[in-house]
């Protein structure tokens, strides 16, 4: 009987410890098992999907590639400046993310326009100015439509051409990417509660030992 009690107490302590450590964010996206030979032994490892190389231009007409995001945690979304529906809500919420991390040079926000014909670099600059964002924390990216639509897929997002009513259909998600360019979370950008969670998750991710050491 006594032994049982001790056992229960130990178990409780163990559980208490476990719940004290912050749970790490999951890694999302497609996983592929890869077999490698390490020290003469065959081991199977899981390789997570990463965001492939890209090349776009930001609101300052600077070329931005995946290299500009090396060593940075970032959030991506898809929008267009004349979007009457969900984009104003998304960017009203994204402004909270911007304000929280704008002094952190290891953090970025990238917003891809899905209407590159209208959203030229000067249009994006004007939008950025009016939105009240400055500096290099938040880039609005212009690129070939095909490139943007292709990269959207690697962020697990669906965007498509204008429908017969002349509207673009696109997801309103914010996607959190870590320094290894892996997807760590997707958040409904129109929901303030989800965006609050995103801000908390960015803090968790920044504190992850795996991220502190990553270059």
């Amino acid at each position: 009987m006594r032994k049982l009690w001790i056992g229960i107490v130990i178990l409780m302590l163990f559980n208490a410890c476990k719940s004290n450590t912050k749970t790490a964010l999951p890694i999302l996206g497609y996983k592929t098992p890869v077999t490698k030979t390490v020290n003469g032994k065959t081991v199977t490892d899981t390789e997570y999907a990463t965001i492939p190389p890209f090349k776009f231009v930001n609101q300052y007409a600077d070329t931005i590639t995946q290299k500009n995001l090396d060593g940075k945690i970032y959030v991506a979304d898809f929008f267009f400046t004349t979007c009457p529906s969900i984009c104003p809500v998304m960017h009203r919420n994204m402004l909270n993310v911007y304000k929280e991390f704008k002094d952190d040079d290891n953090f970025r926000i990238i917003s891809h326009t899905i209407d590159p014909k209208y959203d030229t670099v000067p249009v994006l600059k004007r939008y950025a100015d009016k939105l009240g964002i400055a500096g290099n924390t938040w880039w609005l990216l212009h690129g070939e439509k095909g490139d943007t639509y292709k990269i959207a897929k690697s962020y697990l997002q669906s965007v498509s051409e204008k429908n017969p009513k002349g509207e673009y259909i696109h997801d309103g998600f914010f996607i959190l990417i870590d320094k290894q360019k892996r997807i760590r979370g997707t958040y409904e950008g129109t929901d303030p509660a989800e965006v609050t969670k995103l801000i908390a998750d960015i803090k968790t991710l920044k504190a992850d030992p795996d991220q502190i050491t990553a270059k």
Binding site: P84, S85, P88, V89, R92, Y127, D129, K130, L131, G132
Partner: peptide
Amino acid sequence: QNCHGDKGQGLSSLI
């Protein structure tokens, strides 16, 4: 509401 906000706050200098 999408544009003008749930508190009528608008959006920066855009709305």
